[in-house]
Design a protein around this nucleic acid. Structure first.
Lengths: 210, 210, 210, 210
DNA sequence: GATGAATGAGGTTTCATTCAT
DNA sequence: AATGAATGAAACCTCATTCAT
């Protein structure tokens, strides 16, 4: 009965379509790759005219940006959620906490191979800016791990001389290659698991015998 | 008394041009990316007609194949050369040996950012076959490390329960992210060094205090 | 009350453009030949962008197919229309009927030299499939004549031992060369006429005196 | 011992190579078609460098010209040889003579499908000049037949009112379509034979009963 | 005289983007 | 606001022809 609600519905439809386009673009990009995907493919998947696409996104690069943003945000949200700021009071608890961080990321990729494929394989070949964006994500992951480690160092659970920054990034590297391996061999869940254990084991104990 | 070594002048020219094209393609691909590079760009860089390109390579995909092969071979050659099969008789020696493997790869990438950019960023977005090729390279690296570690386990330098395979791949992952970070921040040599040390440190001792 | 006959304006435009492209391609192909015609030539003739062409036809071969189909259909339609299945009850009537068949085809070609040029001269040099298509058309013509002749034999107008099949094809051959001669000498209408008479004369009476 | 013989040998080699190139071009053109044949194909078939080709022929069009000339000359030579100017003194002898002319051409094409394919299918689609050349050949054939028929008319073997010119061309048309049919169905020798008989039968007796 | 490496005009085809309806 | 027809830049690739060796 009033314009506001009508506008609001239109607005909701508009936002919904935007989200749908991002979703469709995500699927197409991750399945065939960015360069092999035409705008028409995205529109066709949604059953909309491809002219409509340009009412919501400026150009092909723009939609990629939004897709990557979307994925990035989902990844960071998942990681942050996974690691609620609960107090940690013992090494044992710390181990669990630490494992969760690594496993969190690994799991996200394992559960969303398309997401990993897009972020790790496709996004790197668009341009410098896009590559940087991926690097920032990896960097952020490394800093997250580093922050937890720094906390562990302060509490005395970890070596006082630990280079938390580099080690944090190293952890991300191990998770990264785990995700990559999983991408090309998605059925081998046992490797996935052994890998996670190996990472923890190396981290906690190193490779040398005690 | 001459160094033509049984090749006619024409044949030498031919091989030289072939090599030049691979080199030029390598530069273009790693600088602008595969998809952003036109055959004409490669030809222009060499000052040859673009028709000449097709006398030496069947098509754009073909030259990429050769560029990647070339790079892959240089990487593996460097790694193999770096790790001559000298006998290792103590943990100390083992540390050095192990460090060399990791530093070898890291150094190759550090010294050839373009090579790393091409292999790690570009090659992943061409098609499945190309992606697989990169994965095979990473896998080979992991197995190389794993083989050294298995030797260390047999000699009692490393934990008997060490999962050498996963750990080998994990090492590659740490080197990989180190290379990636270096790519986006090539001037920070100190990080590169700290990273190498952190990897070694984590590997040998873990992160927990002894 | 309107003549859109259930087609939307857009649809009509679309079909019109399709027909225009076929028409333009027909002209270009028959004037310069298939191989000498570029898609850009066809587009330029219509004043459309050459990309537009590809919205309506898959490729160059595709448009040729449609052009040939179009022409073939016009020829067969004209021939069939020319020879309504009226009853024939005397040799005199049969002569007229027979003459109409031959003259029908000859006239079609005479009135559409471009059509003849395309079908007889160009279509033969594209590939086997296209050549076969022309042969099928000629074969169909021969069978049409043969069927009429068979009827004449049954009615006793023609020799009982007449090889109607071969003779039917022979008639097509005579028409064919008549058309070819006309193509290279379009102004000589009298030859065209004498030829038609000679064909009839030979058919009915042979060359020997009675 | 003298230059003349040496030069003469060189000259002979040169002429031999020229003939070989024409022969190779003939095979390639008739097998794949003029437009689908590259100069390199011709050279490869002979095992010579394709640059050598241009020492003997000005360009691709030039070699086609020579190939067609060669074929034309073989056809005319065969026809002329087939019809030695023996005296003809009766209708029976005339029939035989006439049959020989037609069968001569038909046989040439039947024995050399490639020749027919080149002349009838390929040559028509190069340019006007080439088409004209084919038409001239057909015209010559028609005139040849017409000349024989005129002789027959003068001797009273044929109808006095026979239009020898048109009828001569008509005979060529019948032979032409016979050759075309044979091209697409080379194995059916019986059709070939029946066709030849039908042509003769139609010519001598017409299709009407006497 | 023979060779084949080099050239670039020319042709086909794709697809991101615009814009009239 | 949605549509999809139209556009043409841009890329790949072929091959007739030239020319230095």
């Amino acid at each position: 009965m009033n314009d506001t609600s009508s506008l609001s519905r239109a607005e909701r439809n508009r936002l919904q379509l935007r989200a749908d386009i991002i979703q469709a673009a995500f699927i197409e990009f991750s399945e065939r790759g960015y360069h092999q995907t035409a705008i028409a493919d995205i529109a066709k998947r949604l059953g909309i005219g491809h002219g409509t696409f340009y009412r919501h996104f400026a150009n092909k690069r723009d939609i990629l940006e939004h897709v990557i943003d979307d994925v990035t945000q989902k990844i960071t949200a998942a990681l942050v959620a996974e690691n609620a700021p609960t107090a940690v009071n013992s090494l044992a608890e710390y181990r669990v906490q630490c494992a969760r961080i690594g496993q969190g990321l690994a799991q996200i990729f394992a559960e969303n191979p398309a997401m990993a494929r897009l972020v790790l394989l496709e996004a790197t070949s668009i341009d410098k800016e896009m590559t940087q964006r991926l690097m920032n994500l990896l960097d952020w992951g490394g800093q997250l791990v580093a922050a937890y480690m720094a906390h562990g160092v302060r509490q005395g659970f970890f070596r006082a001389d630990l280079d938390v920054t580099s080690t944090g990034h190293a952890v991300v590297g191990m998770i990264l290659i785990s995700a990559l391996r999983f991408l090309t061999n998605p059925s081998d869940l046992s490797e996935q698991k052994r890998f996670a254990e190996a990472i923890q084991s190396v981290l906690i104990d190193g490779i040398a015998p005690r």
